[in-house]
Design a binder for these strands. Structure first.
Lengths: 114, 114
DNA sequence: TCCCATATATCGTCGCTCTATATATCGACG
DNA sequence: CGTCGATATATAGAGCGACGATATATGGGA
């Protein structure tokens, strides 16, 4: 229930990656481009931030990555696993809760009922 | 326009303090208690987090703090300055923007118009 | 009187983002 | 052909900021 601020950003970043992959398999660089354009430049991944996240999520089994063998530039294609899809939904709901609670507190509104 | 994740949490924490003081002057410990209860335990300040923020905001002129002289336990009462009130409103709006954009991206919704 | 809650303060650690750097390949342009 | 910029991944190191631990002090209740 309590939110730790230190891991909040981490969670948001992971969510950004996870939700970007909902559209279909992508490689890292493409994720960075898409998140940047989807958010109209509000959010953007530095390479040093993105790739460690990708490795982490793969290690946790939320993504599966495989190197594209075909001709052309070498890239690693990431796909949402079943667990990843479940995590995406769960975390997305969690974010909704956290954000709505945050806005309530910041606005100083009395919470009606929840 | 672009949001730096590293300072997002910092901004959120400062906003939490600022908005808590909108209710009236408070001392640090009271702010911690209020934020915790207002958010129903979702957000809470550790002492090592709160006091540096208070000092920072005071240094920036968004808060003014003065030691209560009266009898009783020594405490430092913080009050929102005019600049602090302005900052609170501005930052609050900024948070709204960031949050709504974030939810849009995470939900994968096409932005209608903005 | 002893302990707990109140109250403020600071230092050190740790986690995480971000910058910088390294490596490599493809396409375009001259 | 040769160079340059975009594509593409990777990692080490810097630096920022939250968090835990610790210190100090006092008021009130058992």
């Amino acid at each position: 229930m309590p939110v730790e601020m230190q891991s909040l950003i981490r969670d948001v970043n992971e969510l950004l990656v996870l939700s970007s992959l909902r559209e279909g398999p992508k490689h890292g660089y493409q994720i960075a481009l898409d998140v940047e354009s989807d958010s109209r430049g509000m959010f953007s991944f530095q390479h040093g931030t993105l790739y460690p996240i990708l490795h982490r999520l793969e290690k946790e089994g939320l993504l599966s990555g495989r190197w594209s063998r075909g001709p052309g530039r070498r890239r690693k294609e990431y796909t949402l696993t079943a667990r990843g899809r479940t995590a995406l939904e769960g975390r997305s709901r969690t974010l909704d809760d956290v954000v709505s609670r945050l806005l309530q507190v910041v606005r100083g509104a009395e919470p009606e009922a929840s």
